[in-house]
Nucleic acid binder design. Structure first.
Lengths: 213, 213, 213, 213
DNA sequence: CATGAATGAGTGTTCATTCAT
DNA sequence: TATGAATGAACACTCATTCAT
C-alpha cells in the first residue's frame, strides 16, 4: 500500500506533472504561518489570504486542513530523508554512517524547529496518530536506521546479542530525549556535542568490542 | 497581594464554606477530560456534560474556561507545595533539604503527569503567560527553592560567588529538562536516579568546598 | 380593576405593612443604576450586587425585571401626581391651575431626567405598551388634566367648541415636544420660559375670549 | 482617509461588482426588522431568518452586527447627501441653497423615519459614538452645511461676526429639535411649515441685513 | 425574610468545508 | 485551474429566572 500524503488524487493527474502554482502557494503559506502560531489556531481563511488564492482551492488539492499539514510535513520528512540518503552514500563504514545519521537528525530537527515541534509534540496527540499517514512516514525514517543497524550486525561491526530494533528504539529515543527540551523551552542546542556524546555512549554500549574506558 | 485562582468571588462567600457540589463536579470533570485531550479542545459543553451540571454553572464559579483550568492547576500546585513544606520541616540541613525538594518535584511531576504536561507545555504557549495567574503560582514555588538556596549561602553551606537566583534557575531548568521528554514520549521516569544525578552535579558545583576536579 | 404595579402580591401581605428592607434596597439599586445606563443593559446580577441582596429576592418581590422597573416608575409617577394634586388644591381658578400643572410637569420631567427618558422613550418601544401597567398610570395622569379642562369648559373659562380630550392631547403633546430634545441631547431646559410660552399659546388659542394680538 | 462602512473588504472585490444577493438580502432584512424593533433587540439569528440566509453569512460580509447597521445607515446617508448635492446644483444663491438644504433634511428624516430614529436616538447612546464610523458620516454631512455657510459669509450674504461653525451647530440643533418628538411620538410632521419657520428665524438672525427687532 | 445553587434558552461570532460555475 | 457564494455545526460566554431550604 502506497503511503498517502493527504493530497487529493485528481482525475487524470499524472505523477510527472509538477504541482500547480496554487497548490504550492498554499503549502508555502502554511509553512510561513506555522512559524508564527500553532497549527490549530491557523484558519483556512488565513492560509488562503497568505497564499493569495481562494479558500476553496485548499480543498481541491487537499482532503482537509490536516491533509495539508500532512503534505507539508511529509515533504519535509522526505526531503530530510533523501538528504540523509545522499550523505550516507558518500560515507563508508556502518560506524561513520551511524554518526552521520545521528548528526543529521539533530541538525534537521534544529534547523526546522517548527516541523520538529509539530512532529514531536502536536502529531503525537492527534487521535489515531498511529494510523496516520505521518506515522507511516516517520516509521519509514526509522526503518532507514534499522537497516543500517542490521547491516552493522551482519558485517560484524555491531553486537549480535541485542536486537537491531531495540538499538534503533534506543537511538531514536535518545535523540528525541535530547532535542525535546530545547524545543519546548526554546533553548539553543549544541548539535556537535550532542552527537558526540550520544555516539560515545552508543560506542561503548552497542559495539561488539567496545573499548571500555 | 493574594494570588488569584481564577475563581469568582461569590458574595458573602467565606473561606470556611466548602465548595458547592457543582463547583467540585466541574473541576473534577475538567481533570477527567484532561486525561484524554488537551485543554484547548475541551469545550464548555463537554465539561458541563461530563460533570452533569449546566454549562452556565461553570461561569458562575469560574471567570472563564481558563479560570477553571487555573483553579485546578493551582489546587494541585498548592497541594504539592504544602506537601514539600511538610517534608522540609522534618528535614535538617540545607543540604538534605535541597535533595528533598528535588526529589519531591520529580515525584509530583511524575505522579501528576496531566498537570505536569499542562504546566510545562501548554501554559508556556499561552499569550501573556508571564502575566497569568498560573505564572504567579509557579513563581511562588520557585521562591521556595530560592529561599532555601539563600539560606544555604548565608549559613555557609553553598558558594557565595554564584547568585542564588542563578542557582535556582539552573536547578529548575535541569529538572524540567529531565522530566519533559518522559512526559511527552510517555516514558517511565527513574526518579531516584534523576535526583541522585542532579544532586551530585549540583554538589560538585554549588557547594562551598566542592572537590574541584 | 385596580392598577397593577408589577409587585408580587405576597400572601398575608397587608397594605398597611411597609415594604421590607430588601424590597426597598432593590428598588433603590435600580434607580441608581438607571442613572448610568439604560434599562436593558442593567442585569439582575447588577441590581442584586448594587442592592446587596440576593438575586432571587428580586423575583420574590417583583414578577420580573420589567415588573421592578414598573414599580420604580409608578412610584415616581404617583409621587409627582400627588404633588401636583397638593399644589392644585391651594390654587384657585382653572386658569391658574392649568399653568401650575404645566409648570409642574416640566419641573418633574426636568428633575427626574432618568425617569423622564424611560417614560418618554424606552417604554414607548415596549411591545404592548398600551396594555402595560405603566400606560395605565400615565393615562391616570392625563385624566387629571382632562378633568381640569372639563371643569374649565363647564364653568365657562375654556372654549366649548373644542373637545376636552383634544385640548389635553395638545397640551401633553406640546410638553413632551418641548422636553424631549433637551433630554436626548442632554441640554438644559428653561422651565419658566417653556411654561410661559406654552401657556400663552394655549391662552390665545383655546380660551374663550382669547385676546387676539 | 476613506470613510469605513462596516463592510468586510473581500479579496479582489472591485467596486464595479454589484453586491452579492446574500449581502443585499441581509441588509434588507435588517431594514425590515428595524421597522418593528430597536437594533439591540434584533438578533443575528433573526436577521438570518428574515433574509433567508445562513447566520454566518452576515459575518462574511460585515465585520459584526454593528458593522451591518453602519452599512445600512451609511447607504442611506450617502444617498440623501448626493440627492441634496443634486438639488443644490440647480439652485442658485446661498440664500436659496440654505433653505433647500433645510427642507431636504426635514424631508429625508421624515421619509426615512427608521434611519432618522437610529441616527438621532440610538447611535448617540453608543459608547464611543464620536469615534464611530457613523459619526464620521454624520460629520461629513454637517460639513456640507458648513461649506455652504462659509460660502455665504465670503460672498457677503451671511454675517461675518458669527463663526460658520456656530451657525451650522445652531441649524442642525434646531432641525433635530424639531424633528425628534415627531419621530418618537410617531406624529406627522409639517415639513414646509418647519422649514419656513426655521428659515425665517435664521434670516432675521444670521443674515447681514436682517431686520433687527 | 432571604439565600446559595442551579438552569434553559439564547448571544454574537467563528470556522472548516461544500457547491455551482 | 480557480473562484465567489453559501452553510452547518460549533463555540465561549451571558442572563433572567426558578427551586429548595
Amino acid at each position: 500500500m502506497a503511503i498517502q500524503t493527504g493530497e487529493k488524487s485528481l482525475p487524470n493527474q499524472l505523477k510527472e506533472h509538477a504541482d500547480p502554482p496554487g497548490k504550492i502557494k498554499i503549502a508555502n503559506a502554511l509553512k510561513t504561518l506555522l512559524k508564527e502560531k500553532d497549527f490549530n489556531s491557523i484558519t483556512s481563511a488565513e492560509i488562503a489570504a497568505t497564499s493569495g488564492v481562494n479558500e476553496a482551492l485548499i480543498y481541491r488539492y487537499y482532503k482537509d486542513k490536516r491533509g495539508l499539514l500532512h503534505h507539508v510535513l511529509s515533504k519535509y520528512l522526505r526531503e530530510s530523508e533523501s538528504q540523509i540518503d545522499f550523505y550516507l552514500q558518500e560515507t563508508h563504514g556502518t560506524f561513520s554512517k551511524l554518526k552521520k545519521v545521528i548528526w543529521h537528525t539533530f541538525d534537521t530537527y534544529d534547523k526546522n524547529r517548527i516541523f520538529a515541534k509539530i512532529l514531536l509534540i502536536e502529531v503525537r496527540n492527534f487521535p489515531g496518530y498511529f494510523k496516520s499517514e505521518t506515522y507511516a512516514l516517520a516509521k519509514h525514517y526509522s526503518m532507514l536506521i534499522l537497516d543500517l543497524l542490521k547491516e552493522g550486525i551482519e558485517n560484524g561491526e555491531f553486537r549480535k546479542d541485542i536486537s537491531a530494533w531495540h538499538m534503533m528504539q534506543t537511538i531514536i529515543g535518545a535523540i528525541e530525549h535530547l532535542i525535546l527540551p530545547s524545543l519546548i523551552l526554546n533553548r539553543k542546542l549544541d548539535i556537535d556535542a550532542c552527537t558526540e556524546n550520544l555516539y560515545q555512549i552508543l560506542k561503548s554500549g552497542i559495539f561488539k568490542d567496545g573499548n571500555v574506558k
